[in-house]
Nucleic acid binder design. Structure first.
Lengths: 301, 301
DNA sequence: GCACGGGTATAAGTATTCCTTTGGGGTCGG
DNA sequence: CCGACCCCAAAGGAATACTTATACCCGTGC
């Protein structure tokens, strides 16, 4: 049972004649006639009776017409649903982002996306970069916002594409009572901090800290470790150490008891958008990427 | 939105991979891959994400799959319904037949058809041949049982095909009190009846009566006219005239007060089945034709 | 009565679509 | 690292689809 022929048959029934169907289809009459013949052969029964002024459906033809109509309706519904997705009148993006982005640029981007495409639904899940990549690989997220510290090769996951969308500068964070707390925008010389106690972040942040200090000529005395930038700042405010934090984290939250200074030799981290290779063919994902990029562009540099 | 591609896509979704769909379809993998590519181009969005061990549907793919499933269901239903009609598990035949056939061979044929194909529904409508042809032409009947007297050209309706299926001999009907009432199977000589009063039937039957008598050398004195073979016999039984009736009418009903004799020179009428030209491509009609033919065959001659 | 205009079908030829073949890239598991 | 399996892209032959050309049938109107 050939579906195309069924739809041609539907036109015949609608027009009441083979020639009429040919006109509405923009074909010649024999083309439609052949379709009808093949369909009748497949069906094993006459579907129409040829009368002087056209054709008239047989019982089998009437039965077939009802099914053909139902199929045509479904086909239109499918096209409509797809159009809604393509034109971003609906759709869902499952987004994974690391905490400090989730608190700053991601909400801003979601808001922008919501203004541009009110029908698109975004579901955010907070995840550190490795977990975010795992979510993508497992098909549980469509798009991830990740970062990599300068000089660190980000793990390349097969099938995922990564695009850099901006840099997040890293700052020195000190207790307010620290001798270097004042000084404004003047870069601090890291070598003057060789004897400090340090607080490190996640594994890759800690590696970046070690590398930076080594290039400054010393090995830091790391006393504490935590992923959480609120915890980090609480420790620092109490004078339990000093640390490095990216600007996004400080934008999200800066504790009253700490001072933030730039320092020479601090390499920024790079922000990335990651998604499955063909996911940029998905309109909602593409729109989310655009919104994130547009939001992050001012943060660049 | 190409329906075939939609059904191929459905196989991809079912199999979970392009290669798997190709296996179930008996095609090569690139064939299926091209269908998918075209479908995605038409849709304007990715429908699947290519993963190491196959593909995974996107949101748009899931939406499309639901519609494709619905279409496939309808398609199977259409095939099933057609099969029921073709295999005569159901179907309707609208039959038109003239009165004496409707009382004799047609019920027998309907019974035979009902035994052969219990699912086929027959609707009988009694109609003299001209009306029966009009019903066929108007599409209100599928098959007609008609007759034509020997030597009469039946009206040829365009688009209808007529097949002779037997002959119905015509008999002389007399009052029981008539001098010729006795005599059994010995043919009566019509010329001995030139002085009788006659009762004629329908227009064409009357014409046949006139022709027969003329060939016998006289013009009949037609006193009464009626289509109805019961009325005809009532008149004859009362001695109001004599007449000719076909055997089918006498099979249906023979009045107690009449005698039936063969006569030399009485030409039989021919029974016909008439239907629209392609209606023999309709299984239920074909089955009804067979049943009628099988029932009429013994009546032949 | 016969040409005309509507409808139908069939036959043959050209186009197009479809599927296969071939070759190559990517990822997983031994 | 190789083999198995998945995917894609490009090119060619085969099948299908549509057109052209022709003929038939029926109702109508000159």
């Amino acid at each position: 049972m050939d579906v195309h022929r069924l739809l041609v048959f539907r036109e015949i029934a609608r027009a009441g004649s083979v020639a009429g169907a040919a006109r509405t289809l923009g074909w010649t009459q024999p083309a439609v006639s052949q379709h009808l013949r093949h369909l009748e052969r497949q069906a094993g029964t006459a579907l129409v009776l040829r009368r002087p002024r056209g054709v008239r459906l047989t019982e089998a033809g009437e039965v077939l017409l009802r099914h053909a109509d139902a199929i045509a309706v479904r086909l239109h519904a499918a096209a409509d649903d797809l159009a809604a997705l393509v034109q971003l009148r609906e759709g869902t993006v499952r987004l994974a982002a690391f905490p400090s982005a989730s608190a700053t640029v991601v909400p801003a981007a979601m808001s922008l996306l919501g203004r541009r495409h009110p029908g698109v639904d975004v579901r955010l899940r907070e995840a550190e970069p490795p977990e975010a990549l795992a979510l993508l690989a497992a098909g549980e997220a469509d798009l991830a916002v990740t970062f990599a510290h300068a000089g660190q090769e980000p793990d390349e996951q097969p099938g995922l594409v990564r695009t850099a969308v901006g840099e997040d500068p890293v700052r020195l964070v000190l207790p307010r009572s620290h001798p270097h707390a004042a000084g404004g925008d003047e870069p601090v010389d890291l070598r003057t901090l060789a004897a400090e106690k340090w607080i490190a972040g996640c594994a890759r942040c800690a590696a970046s800290l070690l590398r930076t200090c080594r290039e400054a000529g010393f090995t830091p005395d790391v006393r504490h470790g935590t992923d959480d930038y609120v915890v980090t700042q609480a420790l620092i405010a109490r004078g339990l150490g000093i640390g490095l934090l990216p600007r996004l984290a400080l934008d999200a939250f800066t504790a009253p008891g700490v001072a933030v200074r730039p320092a020479a030799g601090l390499l920024p981290r790079t922000l990335h958008l990651v998604h499955p290779r063909e996911a940029d063919q998905i309109p909602a994902v593409r729109a989310a990427v655009r919104a994130l990029r547009d939001t992050l562009a001012p943060a660049r540099g």
